[in-house]
Design a protein around this nucleic acid. Structure first.
Lengths: 210, 210
DNA sequence: CAATTTATAGCACTCGATGCCAAAATGGAA
DNA sequence: TTCCATTTTGGCATCGAGTGCTATAAATTG
């Protein structure tokens, strides 16, 4: 009675040829986040993560390009969702409304995911190494928004106006996430919505005080 | 006829005791930027920079904490200027006007500095390692703005509103800088002013197209 | 059992960064 | 001049992240 079928830690029962993966991205992420959370990010070495999962150091780097990337999970997938949300909006809906709805929609998480998300965001917004690396990932997010804005107002995505809107929107979203991760408010989408609402008002002091 | 007086590459003729510094932050920065510009940032090792200035690798790290920091020059001084600009504005001037004026004012550079500044900004906005590190330095900038906003509208600098305004303003400023560094417009302050003007209008589509 | 495919382990190496200590260079005092 | 305090430098040893290369283990197919 052979196990077979390659349903190793990876899961996907697809092509079942060759040696089975010894672990999976998810398992590595769990072990790593656990270590980060208990003994700190900088104090955790890649060797420790690898050992915790039971693979070699070299194998860790086949699952994630860098130690930093572990914290970001499946961020790429979220970018795709954002791009789709922005692209499928009615053309007559105001640009900033579309943007706000899309950002809010892509940041709806189930109650089960929130705890881990808070750990991730806490790390991203507090550990210097990760704060730094966040700029790389957020730049991809910015590109998506800038292309959308350029499509709306005309011109190139690299022009001043689309870049300004995209980077400002990013700033608002990060502010919302950071505040949410730090305080105990459970309402992440609410924070995101508020931040982008403020942005769309041009930060008039009446709205800000309200 | 001894030289004495310690007017080594450092300049400051202050306390003239102990061994003279072999170089200065400015000299190191010049040599490093030159290498970065000609053979690329990642392709330049710290050993090469040190050798170009004629000091040991270990000494380089006494002038700059990291290879990345070289590109940022005297950024700390600019933060002080920004804080002062924001603090010394009349209390009845609208918040976003103060912010825009202050950011524009702290980014006025003489014609002689623009070439080097463009190299610096080009590197910061294009080399992944430096894009990443920029988040660290920009976070300090954000703190200054957030404290100013909190002072205006009340509440804590870590609250959602001040954080949102600060990070959005940062985004606008970065957009202006990046566009300026990439194109050949000589009008840096103009770009910054435009970006922050857009921000204050809430990105209404009329202004964006204009 | 052999061939093929896939994943892993391990080694060597580069590079940034840090801690530690000895040595060089300078001014001032005995 | 000689010795001392001070400051900076140089070199070494070390750590940790990340990469390229190669051999090997495990699995399916024929």
């Amino acid at each position: 009675m052979t196990v077979s079928e390659h349903t190793g830690p990876g899961g996907a029962p697809g092509s079942a040829r060759g040696r089975r993966p010894a672990t999976s991205r998810e398992e590595v992420a769990r072990a790593a986040l656990d270590l980060f959370n208990h003994q700190g990010y900088d104090e955790t070495t890649v060797d420790q993560i690898a050992a915790a999962v039971g693979v070699s150091r070299r194998t860790f780097f086949r699952y994630y390009d860098s130690k930093r990337d572990v914290v970001w999970g499946e961020f790429d997938a979220e970018l795709v969702r954002l791009e789709h949300q922005l692209g499928s909006a009615p053309a007559d809906e105001p640009m900033m409304d579309v943007l706000r709805r899309a950002v809010v929609a892509t940041n709806r998480f189930g109650a089960g995911e929130l705890d881990e998300l808070r750990i991730r965001m806490g790390l991203i917004s507090s550990v210097p190494t990760l704060v730094a690396h966040s700029a790389i990932r957020y730049a991809e997010w910015c590109d998506v928004v800038a292309r959308f804005v350029a499509g709306r107002i005309g011109g190139d995505a690299d022009d001043l106006a689309p870049q300004t809107v995209a980077r400002a929107a990013l700033g608002a979203a990060i502010a919302a996430f950071t505040c949410w991760a730090r305080y105990d408010t459970d309402d992440l989408t609410g924070e995101v919505d508020r931040a982008l609402q403020l942005l769309a008002t041009g930060f008039d002091e009446g709205s800000l005080r309200g």
